[in-house]
Structures are given as C-alpha cells and as structure tokens.
C-alpha cells in the first residue's frame, strides 16, 4: 500500500512524450516530403486552388 501519492513513474512520462514527439515529427516529415514532391513535380499554380473557376464539378462555362 502506498501513501496516496505516486512515486516515480518517469517511464510513463518518457513513453508519452517520446511517442507523441515521434509521431508528430514523423507525420510532419512525411507531409513535408509529399508537399515538396508535389510542388516540384507539378509547379502547381497556387491561384488555381482558390480560383472560383476551379470547381471540381467542371461546370465552368
């Protein structure tokens, strides 16, 4: 029986911080690589993304 307070437990803290940082950094690196690739490959015109004429329904006049 303890004293009603948690002693130690740094292992859990390290695991939580480690997993969280690992996943977020990994996800960020993956997205950066994909975004860079799409930028290099297509020279994507920025304006087209927001342009009203770019409806994916393709019903432009």
């Amino acid at each position: 029986m303890g004293q009603g307070m948690i002693q130690g437990g740094w292992g859990y803290v390290i695991a939580v911080y480690g997993i969280s940082w690992g996943v977020m950094l990994g996800y960020a690196v993956m997205l950066l690589a994909q975004a860079r690739e799409s930028a290099l490959a297509r020279a994507l015109p920025e304006a087209s993304a927001a342009s009203p004429a770019s409806s994916h329904k393709g019903r432009a006049p």
């Binding site: 029986m1 303890g2 004293q3 009603g4 307070m5």
Partner: peptide, 11 residues
C-alpha cells in the same frame, strides 16, 4: 491485491 498508488481514505 494492492490498489493503485493514489488509493487512500477520502479519494
């Protein structure tokens, strides 16, 4: 079995 460490009277 032993309860979690935070177990005590009043909790």
């Amino acid at each position: 079995g032993a309860p979690p460490q935070m177990f005590r009277e009043g909790i």
